[in-house]
Design a protein around this nucleic acid. Structure first.
Lengths: 202, 202
DNA sequence: GCAGTTCCTGACCGATTGGTCAAGTAGCAT
DNA sequence: ATGCTACTTGACCAATCGGTCAGGAACTGC
């Protein structure tokens, strides 16, 4: 076994290859698309050979799983907490905050998924994520809710996700203002949008 | 010259190959992505050979231009009308209606662009569209507007585009309710979101 | 008849794709 | 030294990619 680089976080030694590859792959998948990104590109960007990439990850799909899987898992956990809290206005408010923090922490992963989630059906991690989104839309909104209420949820959550992620995914900075300002504004706006929506009847 | 099929709109003869190919290409680009769609797929779907596709369209990019170009042009026209009307609340309201009608009429095109606009830079029609979006964001919102006001526009327009297009692009139907209900709800919601935003100082 | 279009096609091209495999290197423990 | 494990690599593979090209049908006007 090679020596454990105990202080890899602060030392100047090269980070673990698999981590490096996962990070680069995520960036490429987000910016160029999954099918638009070749293993060769990822290898070049990381300074490895294509064979090395395939040593660390069995195939291209495994690389996608590693890149966005953890974020999808967090979305699932977030959703589980929401459903088990039961329908209440406070639960909804807590979820909105959780959801926005999730978006802020995983912009590239969310960007990758919302842009390609429908075109990559069949890949396990994508199907998992799609199932979560479906569950979310069912939990958050009765199927017999009014058109307007459905749209309120769609615009609120979709708008938050898209405007945040599309505008900021690659300009990791202050274009929209400091992160906490963005966070506060989003929570306020989503709250406004959802305020008129009554709780689903249990 | 082959005979003009004067009543092609109503007759049972096969529609023009180029139109057929453009339509199929748009559907494929939207659902599978540009780089995820091969000329062979399009040819198969249409019942032609790949060579035939390349007879009607010089290359893959030309097919994309034909598929989404007209919609992008309409977006440009819509934007031009908005800017030349000058800053006023009525102008803003008119634009919102125009924009939502545009979304409703060109869901697949918008879907294709918002999902892949950033990854397809370099293709002329995409660059044109990206320029329009930039112009829109500058017109609609001062660069020195508050973070919250910027977010209001982002969530409103991005949310309308995304929620509409993601949910309905492929289920051409009543999932969200009849079209006019959706239209009315969107106009109401976007109006609500933008109401607190003051006009840009000229 | 015959040229002129328009359309469609298969054969073919070089490049690239995702993926396999055997070989090689370095560091560790015994 | 001798393994063992972790890792990296180039050679190689069949398949597919976007694109070219020469030709064949089907139809026109002459």
């Amino acid at each position: 076994m090679p020596p454990v680089d105990a202080d890899s976080a602060t030392s100047s030694t090269r980070p673990k290859a698999s981590d490096e590859l996962r990070t680069i792959a995520l960036l490429q998948f987000a910016s160029t698309g999954f099918s638009g990104t070749s293993l060769q590109q990822i290898a070049d960007e990381a300074g490895y050979s294509k064979s090395s990439v395939l040593y660390h990850y069995a195939n291209k799909e495994a690389l996608l799983e590693a890149a966005i899987g953890p974020a999808i898992d967090r979305l699932g956990a977030l959703l589980a907490r929401f459903t088990e809290r039961g329908p209440s206005l406070e639960a909804r408010g807590l979820f909105v905050e959780d959801f926005i923090d999730f978006l802020l922490d995983h912009r590239l992963e969310v960007y990758t998924f919302i842009n390609q989630g429908s075109s990559l059906r069949g890949i396990p991690v994508i199907d998992r994520a799609n199932a979560f989104i479906l569950e979310l839309s069912n939990t958050v909104c009765d199927e017999n809710a009014s058109t307007e209420d459905k749209m309120r949820f769609g615009v609120a959550l979709g708008g938050a996700a898209y405007s945040l992620v599309a505008g900021m995914a690659f300009l990791d900075g202050e274009q929209l203002g400091p992160v906490d300002e963005v966070r506060a504004a989003l929570i306020k706006l989503v709250g406004e949008l959802l305020a008129p929506v009554s709780l689903p009847s249990v």
